Simulated scan of single mutants.
Amino acid sequence: MTTFDTLFFHFFQHYKIKRNKKANSIAIFYISVLQIALLLLLGVFFAGFSRQMHMNTMSSDKAWTLFVIMSIFIYFKNWIQYSGRKRKVLNAKNLKNKKLTYNIWLLWFLPIAVLALAFVLYQAV
């Protein structure tokens, strides 16, 4: 299991107790936001790197369009991956492992921190 799978099931198990019907949607939303934030951070880093190296590879409009397309792809990939049979198989494997003791507020803060870092990096470039 990947790190994202582990985080997904931690969120799924946490919210399954409180909001049974919405647990899967909340966990998919969290994983998608985290992956999209990491994609944004990488994009800003490579845009700044390209600008420092004086490389003209892509216009800003095309880069934002590509980011939006990749964001939609990430969400639908997660939706398909974690809504079907694979989620049930991974959940059964995850139940055999020990319970995770991550702080849920710290995990919610993680995408916010990545977005803040991307914003700071964008301002520096």
Rank of each mutant, 00 (worst) to 15 (best):
F8R: 00
A37K: 00
H54K: 03
K16P: 07
A118V: 04
F73W: 11
A47D: 14
K62H: 12
Q81E: 09
K88D: 04
H10A: 11
S71I: 10
F8K: 00
L106D: 03
A116D: 06
K96N: 03
W108T: 00
K18E: 10
W108Y: 10
Q35C: 14
S25D: 08
A63T: 12
L42Y: 03
L34S: 01
A47L: 12
T2N: 14
D61F: 14
R85Y: 14
R19I: 11
L90H: 01
F73R: 06
F119P: 00
L110K: 01
L106F: 05
N97R: 09
S60M: 07
K21Y: 12
D5H: 02
T2I: 05
M1W: 08
T101A: 09
S50M: 07
I31G: 02
N56W: 14
S83E: 02
K16L: 11
F45V: 10
F46G: 13
L95I: 06
D61M: 07
W108M: 13
A27E: 00
L95Q: 08
S32M: 04
V33T: 10
L41V: 14
N97Q: 08
F109N: 04
L41K: 07
F29L: 09
S32T: 01
A124D: 13
L42E: 06
S59Q: 11
K21S: 09
L117C: 03
W64I: 11
F11L: 02
